[in-house]
Amino acid sequence: MNQDTHIFAHEDNGAKLIHMAQEIADYFHAYPQERAVESIASHINHFWTPKMREDFLAAADAPGQTLTPLLQAARGGIKRKKIK
């Protein structure tokens, strides 16, 4: 069913996830680099579904997309979806 007559310009999911991840990075920015990198990845692993993590990584890989250095450093610690 799609009866949506409400038109609303909205960030696409990938952009939104990158924004959310950046806000997490902004918080941990106050910590020393090593701890900040580990904490950002851990936070995302802790609270985001595997699909959100995959969508984030895909959005981060999109052409033209750049991450801040701290977030870029943290992305390697983000867990990939397990094959079940």
Binding site: N13, F47, W48, K51
Partner: peptide, 18 residues
């Protein structure tokens, strides 16, 4: 053993058709 969706994520995923 993986976290599920929070309310705002549910809505985002719904808008995305998932």
């Amino acid at each position: 053993d993986e976290p599920g969706l929070r309310i705002p994520n549910m809505i985002d995923e719904a808008v995305a058709g998932n």
